[in-house]
Design a protein around this nucleic acid. Structure first.
Lengths: 150, 150
DNA sequence: GCAGAATTGACAGGTCCCTGTCAATCGCCT
DNA sequence: AGGCGATTGACAGGGACCTGTCAATTCTGC
């Protein structure tokens, strides 16, 4: 796919690293990490998620999500409330401050991303999105699928 | 770009995580980590690089590359030779075993990647590659470009 | 109902990678 | 020639994330 590497995987990796860097840079002014921003985004879209839900949504470990949400909670951007239907879990909601913070940060991030995609048509972007989504469906066999061969 | 997140950055991240998982799974049979495989690939393409060169090529920190190369060296897949032109740096070369290992692993990885891209035309793949490459050109301002505004 | 499997949030421990730093060396410039 | 910034490889220390585990709770099959 690419001449020097030859593997699209590392092209995707490089793109992710660059994008993360740019987004992180855009977020320092809002005192948010990339992961925190992602969580705020998810929580705004789906309020009342549990820690485990957030972890699944941002595809990270439960504990990582827990630690990061603790940071957001310390900053007063999210709050945990007991879940009346499930005494194990807690529902997590954006506070007003969290919503304000997200409303401030989101346009910045969107602007950065839009600027980077300049020159690509909507159809091309759609193709890219389709390809990336296809990659995400690369479900790795959790239980190792080559057991019998040995 | 994507309905739930709304940010292409996280779609790229998700794609990278999935790809890394799949590639890592394909590489366990060859006893290679994804980073090690990338380094072998780069060193095969450009033999005699220094540790710093490898770090830049795989876009990681010098020390991370150093540790990983130490692992490859312990496994006998690469070797360090003094650089006659520069007594600070060392030239790193693939050993015969390293070349064999790479020749074994590369087809596996390529097959996995090709299988994932099934159904996309060459033109579409080219668009994806162009977009990803464009993202990698998102040079983050190392020296903060918004100094004057405050 | 109730035993067993699954899930949730939290904890410990470890890994990977990064930043900051250092002496040694190289390149440039005068 | 010689000073000075930049680079290289190595070291210490820390941050972010993960796996493995636990009690508590919920869900499921009988």
């Amino acid at each position: 796919m690419n001449s020097p590497d030859g593997c699209s995987t590392f092209l995707v990796r490089h793109a992710w690293l660059s994008l993360r860097g740019v987004v992180a840079e855009a977020l320092v002014a809002h005192e948010l990490s990339v992961a925190q921003f992602a969580s705020l985004l998810m929580l705004n879209d789906t309020p009342g998620m549990s820690v485990a839900d957030v972890a699944r949504k941002v595809s990270t470990a439960r504990q990582s999500a827990n630690e990061m949400l603790a940071g957001l909670e310390r900053a007063g951007l999210v709050e945990r409330r007991p879940n009346p239907n499930d005494r194990r879990s807690q529902r997590i909601y954006l506070t007003d401050a969290g919503r304000v913070r997200l409303d401030e940060a989101l346009p910045t991030v969107r602007a950065v991303e839009a600027k980077l995609s300049e020159g690509f048509s909507a159809e091309e972007i759609a193709v890219v999105a389709a390809w990336l989504t296809r990659m995400t469906q690369a479900e790795q066999s959790t239980t190792t699928e080559e057991i019998s061969t040995c």
